[in-house]
Structure formats: C-alpha cells, structure tokens
C-alpha cells in the first residue's frame, strides 16, 4: 500500500463485488427510485418504531449485497458499519444478528466512505479477504436526535436538509469484479466556526474542499483525471461554496461536481436544500454511480462523503460544528491500474 500525505493508494486490485441498497418512500419517488434494490412505501418499513425501521433497512441492504455475491455471513471476515444514532445502535444491533467480527465507526454522514476506505485497506493489507461495509440513516430517527421530532412542529429554514431514509452495503474483496477501488483520502476535521445545525451544507463545504484538494495534490493529479467529483450531502447551499473554495485554490470542478443530496430527490419533494445523512451518499453511490461505472458512462469517480460531526449537547453549549470528509476513488475495472 502506498501512502502519500493522507491518501492511500492500494497496491492490490480491490474490488467492489456487489452492493445492496434499501430506501424509504420519498427516496423511491425520487429521480433515482428505480436504481435501488428495495423500496418501502411506508416510513415505518413494516416495523413498530423508527429505530427498528432503520435496522430493517440496513439488514435488507446487507442481505441484498450478500445474495448478489452468493455468500453467507460466515464467509465474510469483517463487518464495518456506522450510522447516525447515539451509540451507533443500528449498526451494533444489526451486528448482533450477523455474528461477523465487527468494526463500528462514526463519522456522521462521512461514514459511508470511511467504512469503505478502512475495509479496502484491510483487504489490501491482507488482514481480511472479504469485508462488508454498511451505513444507514432514517429521516425520523435522525430528525428526532439532531433537530426536533416531527410532532414538535418546529419550522425548518430553506438551508436545512432532509435526512435520507435508507441503507447501503458493499462487499469488498480481491476477487475480480467490474468496479475497482484504487485509492482513498482520509479527511481532516475542519471547523470554520459555523454553528447553525440547520445549515450543515455551509459547514461541511470546507471539509470537502480540503479533502479534494489534498487528494489531487497527494496523487499529483488534476480534475481531468476524473469524470465526476461526487459529494455526499452538501446540498444546494454547500455545493456552490465548495466550488468557490476550490476555485480559490485554482481547482475547477464546476462541470464535474455532483452532490448525492441533490441527485436523490426532486426539488419539489419538500426536502429544503436537499438530502443528507449517511444513507444519502451510500445509496446513491452504491446504486446509481456504480451503474454509471458499469455502463461505461464514467471511468473514474471520486466520492467524497461529507460529515457534520454535530452533537446537540455541544450546540447547546454554543460550540461550532466540526466537519470531516472522506474520499474514495472508484473506477471501472477494465480501465487498468492507475497508480
């Protein structure tokens, strides 16, 4: 494995063998609705409460992922997962049932790429043969924990985002497949002093800018080396800020930038500035972006999952919101090794 700055380039070919996605009703109605494996018509996903609903989404995403690779849970070496809830309850309760050695992580909405990066690293270094990386979020569980419960009726400003209901899982190994993971850039915690939990796009944009800039610098690449730069959930507010910040550094990603939070919903779905949450980058990347790679629409993409490390307790103590962004490069396998 190569280390350049904060970027890992994998020595071996690390493949995404399969992926699974499960989403809620609003995501199913959105423009990418057809690309997800499982869609629920009801936000409860057939369960009695919201936490169980989120857990079911993660279980279904993992189940889809393993079924596509024709694997049983005991053939997977490690389960690497995280979500947004306190004590990572979704991941840990899913892990209780999976009985795969578990590494649980928290990086807020950056967890999707954080788990993929760590999983790829383990597979590359030979400490694992097969890993499953999974993340989830649920609109009702997240809104209640980080903002207000819906019943409270608190107003949301237009800068707020809507937490995506869904879960995504990927199986990563060195066995040949059509999508390859070639490098990953681990984010730094960036804090520009923003304090508004209803405007996380603005808070996270500098973290994404830092990761993209360091990634290009570490690998001595330019934006021409990529077909897309995909951010997790900067939304309509954070995306222009990211482009401006990068422009100041002489990096122009305007034409190549896409945000999962803007891709997953139509603007008329009452989602304010766009989608957010761990599942936002996970379900869009593991379905739509992977499909684009497979159909040769794109050859190489850099997915930067952005996370607002928001704690309601810290916000009440007038602290600002630290943010982080982890990036992973996915390529079409036939393209060859690029180191």
């Amino acid at each position: 494995m190569g280390l350049m700055g904060g970027t890992w380039t994998f020595e071996n070919r690390i493949y995404v063998n399969s992926s699974g996605t499960a989403v809620g009703p609003k995501e199913a109605e959105g423009p990418l609705g057809q690309t997800f494996d499982i869609s629920h018509e009801d936000l409860h996903c057939g369960e009695d409460n919201w936490e169980l609903a989120e857990r079911r989404l993660m279980e279904q995403a993992i189940d889809q992922c393993l079924t596509k690779s024709n694997l049983q849970t005991d053939q997977v070496d490690f389960f690497i997962a995280g979500d947004l809830l306190n004590q990572n309850v979704t991941s840990n309760y899913v892990a209780r049932h999976l009985q795969i050695p578990t590494i649980c992580m928290f990086g807020a909405c950056s967890t999707s790429m954080e788990t993929v990066a760590i999983g790829s690293q383990l597979v590359d270094s030979g400490f694992a043969n097969k890993i499953v990386a999974a993340t989830s979020s649920h609109n009702a569980t997240a809104e209640r924990q980080f903002r207000y419960p819906t019943e409270y009726g608190g107003q949301k400003p237009d800068t707020a985002t809507a937490t995506v209901t869904g879960a995504g899982a990927v199986l990563i190994s060195q066995e040949y497949s059509d999508i390859v993971i070639t490098s990953a850039t681990i984010g730094k915690v960036v804090d520009y002093g923003l304090k508004d939990p209803f405007d996380m796009g603005s808070a996270m944009a500098p973290a994404a800018a830092d990761t993209i800039q360091r990634h290009l610098q570490d690998l001595n690449r330019t934006t021409n080396d990529y077909d897309m730069f995909i951010t997790g959930d900067l939304s309509g507010i954070g995306s222009p800020i990211l482009k401006d910040l990068l422009k100041e550094e002489g990096i122009d990603i305007d034409e190549k930038h896409f945000d999962c939070g803007l891709m997953i919903y139509r603007p008329d779905q009452n989602v304010f500035a766009g989608g957010s949450g761990c599942a936002c980058s996970a379900v869009v990347t593991f379905s739509h972006i992977f499909n684009m790679l497979r159909s040769k629409e794109v050859d190489r993409v850099f997915v930067v999952a952005t996370g607002a490390l928001l704690s309601p307790t810290m916000i009440q103590q007038k602290e600002s919101i630290p943010t982080i962004a982890h990036g992973v490069v996915f390529e079409r396998a036939e393209r060859g090794v690029h180191h």
């Binding site: 936000l43 409860h44 919201w50 609109n139 009702a140 809104e143 419960p149 819906t150 019943e151």
Partner: peptide, 8 residues
C-alpha cells in the same frame, strides 16, 4: 398518542 402513529 394512544390512537395515532407518528408520521415522521
């Protein structure tokens, strides 16, 4: 709370 389920 007894008769209705939360919507979101």
């Amino acid at each position: 709370a007894v008769f209705f389920r939360p919507k979101g």
